[in-house]
Amino acid sequence: MIMDNMTIKNQEEIAPKIYRIEVTGPLTQQMKNPGQFVNLRVSKGIDPTLRRPISICDVDVEKETLTMIYRVEGKGTKLLAEKVVGDEVNILGPLGQGFPVEAAKPNDVCVLIGGGVGIPPLYYLGKQLVAAGAKVITILGFRTDKDIFLEEEFQELGELIITTEDGSKGVKGFVTDALKELKAYDLYYTCGPKPMLKAVEQTASTHGFISLEERMGCGVGACLACVCDLKERDKTTGKAYAKICSDGPVFLSGEVIL
């Protein structure tokens, strides 16, 4: 099974325009890999036409609940925010290649670096890294202190550094300003807007894993709407590009041109 209707158990606005939604259904049994996403249909009608790709923030396989956090940006996410407990949403997923948890060895220090709605998938990842014995340091970037979300959740995983652009909380500046100050770590995982990912890749002293976002069509690798260029051709397929939805959204640092 890859597509099913899931029932909304909870939905709340946790920061301005940022919503947390919890849905339940057996599809969660397959959602074991952090960094994957689902393609969600917000309307039974034809407006909007396409599904919305939204990252997986947390999954409780036993309770069959999937948690997602999204920003109300346009028509589709506005419709999703209007849905109430008991409503059903059609979900296609899990899709894509997620973050490799096994890349971190026990006691490795892993830095999670997130910005905006790139933050949610790092939470499911962080939980799994901690469970695997790795040490987690998280750097989350927001515009102001009012925009902060998931603070307590990440604090439970290890050290948390918050940056705000206006300095209203934590380090003033961007996530890279905090990353520069970190002494020793073994690898990083990051998700956020492309300029941030680029800056993280340049600033980091180790290799890491980068999760991209892009406007998508099919979400399964067929339409080629969400491609990005590879730095070097893929040795097995010979292709010069990668599909963010199905080859990604997570890539090794240095693998794609940001």
Partner: peptide, 14 residues
């Protein structure tokens, strides 16, 4: 170059 898709009610541009 991307973006390569945009939407409209009942349709999409590619």
């Amino acid at each position: 170059p991307t973006p390569r898709v945009a939407e409209t009610p009942g349709g999409m541009l590619n």
